[in-house]
Design a binder for these strands. Structure first.
Lengths: 119, 119
DNA sequence: ATAATGCTTCAACACTTCTGGAAATAACGA
DNA sequence: TCGTTATTTCCAGAAGTGTTGAAGCATTAT
């Protein structure tokens, strides 16, 4: 992750509507949601939503796939991970400065839930 | 962390100069660096730097303390942690979607290094 | 006192971003 | 084919952001 890429991603998230959209898609899982569904759930006009989805996609935070007339958007977990790694790089020299972050996805949790759940 | 707080923090980080400053202070540890030192290391004019330090501080990402003529700025690890927790909340239902993030600060690492290192 | 140092504030300008209406494109159904 | 649905693009105006030079405060040194 380059500084420029990180700035793009952060700028994309630094807007109320886009942050709502992103968080909705983060909880929605890898399958994602159709654009219209996102708009309906959050009460956003189609053209405005399209603008914000484009911004998030260009920043690499969302991936889009077409299915018939619908376009599904899903969170790009890998780039979110890269962004967080970039922000916390060399933080505190390994001391426990980020308790919530480290608790969030422990090795134990990872072992308990397999990726196949989404297959 | 409220959505508004998160947007403020993300907006503060979504700027090349500020991101550089923040990352420098993240690696600098809890003691922080004097404003002038930050400016010297990154090559930023005093007035410009002051503007950006203020933005980062108001967003809660930095804490400032005066020491004589110098003002030391340090990363606020707690708010960075809150921000990451906010972004990744309910992500992927516990599946291993953020490998780097979870590897970043494991329980093992936390035990190995005590907070007293900075006392 | 006076000067020097460290940092901040102010005002002005160029530049970018967000929003909303209207029109365009694309896929499907009758 | 024609209409409907899903989504995007274009445009213009309003609002916000970053940079610069000059001036202003505090704190320390002479």
């Amino acid at each position: 992750m380059t500084p420029a890429t990180a700035v793009d991603a952060l700028a994309a998230l630094a807007q109320e509507t886009r942050l709502k959209v992103f968080r909705l898609l983060v909880t929605a899982g890898p399958v994602g949601l159709a654009a219209g569904e996102v708009g309906a759930q959050l009460g956003i006009a189609a053209n405005t939503l399209s603008f914000h989805l484009k911004t998030l996609s260009q920043a690499g935070l969302l991936v889009a796939r077409q299915e018939g007339r619908f376009i599904y958007y899903a969170a790009n977990y890998a780039s979110m991970d890269d962004l967080i790694a970039f922000l916390t790089q060399n933080c505190c020299n390994g001391v426990a400065c980020l308790p919530k972050t480290s608790a969030m996805a422990t090795t134990a949790k990872r072992r308990k839930n397999s990726l196949k759940e989404y297959a």
